[in-house]
């Protein structure tokens, strides 16, 4: 299901929820299912039945990779009723959304986010995958309802999550530290860099584009180990047999 999204001043790729297809397949496979109550996924363990008083609405952000973030949520019956009361007739026509706030490298004071964008969600699915267009950012979300005239009623807020970097950081001043162990743990002392010996200094001067980080990054193939081998991968799976 591809939903269209709005943004504040920013052109964004469409977000989507590919997880729901795979989740369907997982549901069809042969294992016990718990009761399908209140829109819970078929295979979730309903801790709410165990501990009603401990459960409240929540939304959690889990970055997957630099350009993809996963969100899951629970919205209590009470909170839905409150929203219905608050929005009245507008509730039925409102859209459940995740409002993402970009708070990269700032301390959020309620007003100073870099910007925000909205993602339409299907409240019943309880989770969503959102495409991002820039890596290495900090976000939190408000889950809530947006009415036709643009009014937004937040229901619950996540904590801040940071997406990973997709490339090396820029070169900057280097700082060095000496670390030793003492009775209280690690003792750290900032130290100046040792000057380069003449022979190496000359080499640096000859090769202006020299950069070991760049070299390592270029040689790097993302995660070949897990793909090739795992202690429990492929065991007893006749499909892998030649």
């Amino acid at each position: 299901m591809i939903k269209s999204i709005e943004s504040k001043d920013i052109e964004r790729p469409k977000s989507y929820n590919p997880g729901s297809e795979k989740q369907e397949k997982a549901k069809q496979s042969d294992f016990e299912a718990s009761q399908d109550t209140q829109g819970l996924t078929r295979d979730s363990i309903d801790f709410r039945n165990l501990y009603e008083e401990y459960c409240e609405s929540r939304v959690v952000l889990l970055p997957v990779e630099p350009y993809l973030i996963h969100a899951y949520w629970d919205v209590t019956h009470n909170d839905i009723e409150k929203a219905k009361q608050r929005l009245g007739d507008d509730y039925r026509k409102s859209q459940a959304i995740l409002r993402f706030y970009d708070v990269t490298n700032i301390i959020y004071d309620g007003t100073n986010a870099h910007g925000f964008f909205d993602v339409d969600i299907d409240l019943q699915s309880q989770n969503w995958y959102v495409d991002l267009w820039s890596p290495d950012k900090s976000y939190f979300v408000d889950l809530g309802f947006k009415t036709g005239d643009g009014f937004f009623l937040p229901v619950t807020r996540s904590s801040v999550a940071r997406t990973p970097c997709a490339w090396p950081a820029p070169k900057a001043d280097e700082h060095y530290m000496s670390v030793a162990e003492d009775e209280e743990g690690l003792s750290k002392i900032e130290v100046p860099e040792k000057p380069l010996p003449q022979s190496i200094q000359a080499r640096y001067e000859k090769r202006v584009d020299f950069d070991l980080t760049e070299m390592s990054e270029k040689a790097f193939t993302l995660g070949i180990s897990s793909e090739f081998i795992s202690s429990t991968q492929g065991k007893n799976d006749s499909a892998d047999r030649l």
Binding site: P18, G19, S20, E21, K22, Q23, K25, A26, T41, D43, S44, I45, F47, V60, L62, P63, V64, E65, P66, L68, H70, Y72, D74, Q126, N127, R162, T163, P164, C165, L222, G223, S225, S226, E227
Partner: peptide, 26 residues
């Protein structure tokens, strides 16, 4: 250091995708 893993594609996808994302709320 930067968020990373030695899993396929270098981040968390192997352990967080449509097949297994349901476990994390639990």
């Amino acid at each position: 250091p930067s968020t990373s893993s030695w899993g396929y594609k270098g981040f968390h996808e192997t352990w967080l995708n449509g097949t297994n994302d349901w476990i994390y709320r639990q």
